[in-house]
Structures are given as C-alpha cells and as structure tokens.
Design a protein around this nucleic acid. Structure first.
Length: 428
RNA sequence: GGAGAGGUGGCAGAGUGGUCGAUUGCAUCGGUCUUGAAAACCGACGGCUCCGCGAGGGGCCCGUGAGUUCGAAUCUCACCCUCUCCGCCA
C-alpha cells in the first residue's frame, strides 16, 4: 500500500510514476472519494464530539443530584444523525481502503523503463556455459533415464495422484533434492547471517493481504475448502514476512535476516501451455527463501547484498547465471525494485529464472503495520521488507542435472554439494 | 471433542456503567548528584487519525465484530485467540 498522505497530496506525481509500470491510476475517482471523505468525516466527528459533551454533562448533573431529564430530551435527535453519519463514513472509508489496496508499488528511479521481460536489463553474468561433445539431454530425459522401470523423476505416477504439474522423485535424485535444501539453508545461516525459521504452510487472508497477494491475485492461489479461510502459501515470503505484522521491532534487532525452507503452491492460472514439460513450472515446489527486515535507509544496499547471497549458491554449485534488472512493466505488484537471477539451462540454450530478489520498501510494512523504533525516535516508523529466493530448489535441480550431465546419462554431483550427499560423486 | 479461566499501553498488572485512554510497578528517555558508574531524587513517557499556516482544537483505539444506553474497558450476543483439566492423537 502506498502512503495515503502521498495519495492525498500528490496524486499526479504518483500517477506519473505508476505509468512506468503501464498502470493507469484513476486520479479523478480517487480525488472524488477523498473530497467526500473529508466532508463526511468532519460531519461525523462533530456529531461525536457533541455526543461526548452531552454525555459528560449528564454525568456531571447526576453526580450533583440534579434532574437529568431535560438533558436527555435534548439528545434525542442526535442519535439517529450520528448513526447515519458514522455508517456513511465507514462505507466510504472501506471503499477508499479497497481502492488503495489495488494500487501497485512505485518503481524506484533506478528501475529501467519498459513494458515486458523483453525490456529487462542484464546487469552481469557469471560462469561460462559448458560446451558438450555429445547430444544434450534435458532434465526429464536424464531423470527418467536413471531407472526406466521405476524412474527417478516420475511425472506419470504424479499425474495419477494429482494431475499435471506435479512430480515424484526417487532414490539418489530425491536425495539430491533434499541435499540442496540443506546446503542452501546451511550456507545462508552459516555464512550469510540468516536465522532459520519454520512456519505454517497454511495462512489466512490477512497474511496474504500483508504481502500483497490479496486482494488482487486470488486466482493464483490454492484455497482450502472448509470453515476456516485458509490458503496454501505460494511462497515462504508470506508467512515469514508476516511474522512482524502489528509489531514494533526494537531498532537494535535490525537488520533481521530470516531463511526458510517451505513448499510453495501455485495454481498457475493463466500459464496454460507454458513449460508443460518437466520441473520448471509445478503446482508444488520447494524453495529456500531469504527475508530481510531493515531500516529504510538500508534497504537498497540490502537488496544488493541479498541478491549476492542468492548468487553465492549458484557460484558454489558452479552453475552459470546472469542477473537481470526487471523493467518497470515486468515487476511484481508489491516491488519497487527487482533483480531476477537466471541460470543457464543447456537443453533450452537459454537462461531461466531461478531467483527473484525484491525490495518492497514500506509497501508491505504499511499493509502489515510492521514498524520499528529506537529510544531516540519519537514515533515508530515503518520498516522496509525485502525477499529473494535462495533458491528455487526444483529449478536448481534442473540446472544441476543438465549442466553436470555426462555422455552415459549419469550426472556428476557438484563438489560443493557432496558433503550433503554422503560423499557421492555421481548419480544415475 | 467435554469442562473451566482469561484476553487492558514495550512488559507486568489495577480498573465491573459516568470528568478513564485508563491507577501503579518495571523498562525506556532527559535532568540533579558523582572523577565515572550505580543508587537515590525530579521530570518525561501509548498508537492511529481529522481540521488548522500556526498556536491549538477534535475524533477513534482496552482481542474482533455487532448490540443495549444520554454515556461502555466495564452490561448482552457472536466470533477469534491463549491457558488449565479430561478425552483422543503424530
């Protein structure tokens, strides 16, 4: 959510900045709502003040033992007027709030112009894609080939259980999948200063509103049927960031860095036909997420740092990648600046997204009412939130299988991962 | 699932219809004292928001939402959450 004060005071500036996203702000509509609000709120509050004054007078009269009947008679008409005015005000305020919740974050000045992923700007590359002297197999062929009768990567069995976009893994492949999670978590906690957290995988709508998935993107989520309104998390960002909802954090505790492994569940509505084959786009996948809560002045530096933490995983695994600055039109709803990290996928001869690192500034914090304070500050202030994948586990597995494949269909285990694989050097 | 207790400011904990947004303690901040610190003493100290250039003046908030009342932290109802005991269970 943007600062309501800003939306009141400089609507045209906001509209211009949001225009870079390709978003059209309804300035006339918002201004009209605001004008009504002012009028009705003043009226309602005047009536409330009058009610309070009269109630107080009754109390004082009664204490002195005076007759209160005349005072009560005076107040008769007030009640209905007040009820009416309060109802109008409530209705209007919820309309305004609803409108504000639909507005995306303002892109940072450093974000490149552009409308789609074609306009994203490559920031740097690391590593050199390997030259193969044999026909390259994709990860599906490799995984299914490990043991054709009982494939290590088995989409058919998964489909039998759950339909398309699910997977079953077995044996050494399943172990590597698990090893990656441990490796990533251990790296972030051991070398990058993150604290590991464990969180619920089912959350209520208020948490999803806090990070910005609701109210606008409900169709991307899996929602449980039942009495309780619960959703499967689409990313650990939701439960982890929302840990500070309604809290005032002691400034001495900042920056807070949390790393968390969770499964992620996405309906992938609207991506029919894309990435049908393989592990790239699944309804359920594992991810290790990094979340940072920082002081406002530190958030841009923290974004660079956090992106570096994600890159470090790829460097240790020896996987070539590039970092891309998303253009204004390609960024997520809540973000003011995003770097995508894309890993080299040999079978597709292209870089594919494996991490997305974003600074949200105070956009999520305002929705969550997440603030911080130190002794010198008069009032608590909104903190800044950031997050990034570190990394998407399924896609990392894809990258390892394909980049480390051998001519005989086996896959070499990256050296950095071997301690988590019981020393295995090769699988398949 | 059954029975009971409870949700108040950063924390602890008073307050059961009326000048209560709330006594008090701890913590925090400023000051006095001190070579420095501690102790002691003095003072300050919730959040959100509206109108106003400002001085200042209002409104809302005692888990959440409805209700009763001239007036609700206090009464009624529903819901959420926490704790204790019993049952069940990984």
């Amino acid at each position: 959510m943007l600062d309501p004060k800003l939306l009141r005071s400089d609507l045209e500036l906001v509209a211009r900045q949001l225009g870079r996203r390709g978003y059209t702000l309804d300035t006339a509509g918002l201004a009209a709502l605001e004008e009504q609000r002012k009028e009705i709120q003043t009226r309602a509050q005047n009536l409330q003040a009058e009610r309070n004054a009269r109630a107080k007078a009754v109390g004082q009269a009664k204490a002195k033992g005076e007759d209160i009947a005349p005072l009560l008679a005076q107040s008769e008409a007030l009640g209905a007027q007040l009820t009416q005015a309060e109802a109008e005000l409530n209705a209007l305020q919820s309309r305004i709030e609803h409108a504000h919740l639909q507005i995306p974050n303002i892109p940072d000045d450093s974000v490149p112009d552009g409308q789609s992923d074609a306009d994203n700007v490559e920031v740097r590359r690391w590593g050199t894609p390997r030259q193969f002297d044999f026909p390259v197999r994709d990860h599906v062929a490799l995984g299914e080939g490990f043991n054709p009768a009982n494939a290590a990567l088995d989409f058919e069995r998964a489909a039998k259980l759950s339909g398309a976009r699910f997977s079953v893994m077995r044996g050494q492949l399943a172990r590597m999948h698990r090893a990656l999670i441990q490796f990533m978590l251990d790296t972030h906690t051991g070398e990058h200063g993150y604290q590991e957290v464990y969180v619920p995988y089912l959350v209520g709508p208020q948490a999803l509103r806090g990070t910005g998935q609701l109210p606008k993107f409900e169709e991307d989520l899996f929602k449980l049927r039942g009495e309780r309104e619960l959703y499967l998390i689409p990313t650990a960002e939701v439960p982890v960031t929302n840990l500070v909802t309604d809290e005032i954090v002691d400034a001495a505790q900042l920056p807070i860095r949390w790393a968390c492994h969770t499964p992620c569940f996405r309906s992938e509505a609207g991506s029919h036909g894309r990435d049908i084959r393989g592990l790239i786009r699944q309804h359920q996948f594992e991810k290790v997420e990094m979340v940072q809560l920082v002081k406002p002045e530190d958030s841009m530096a923290a974004l660079e740092e956090l992106t570096g933490h994600a890159e470090k995983i790829l460097q240790k695994l020896g996987l070539p990648y590039r970092v891309v600055a998303l253009c204004a039109g390609d960024m997520g709803f809540s973000s003011c600046k995003t770097y995508d990290i894309e890993v080299w996928v040999p079978s597709q001869e292209t870089y594919r997204e494996i991490s997305s690192c974003s600074n949200f500034r105070d956009f999520q914090a305002r929705r969550m009412q997440a603030r911080y304070k130190d002794a010198q500050m008069k009032k608590p202030e909104l903190l800044h939130t950031l997050n990034g994948s570190g990394l998407a586990v399924g896609r990392t597995l894809v990258a390892i299988l394909e980049n480390y494949q051998n001519a005989d269909g086996t896959v070499t285990v990256p050296e950095a991962l071997r301690p988590w694989m019981g020393g295995l050097t090769c699988i398949g």
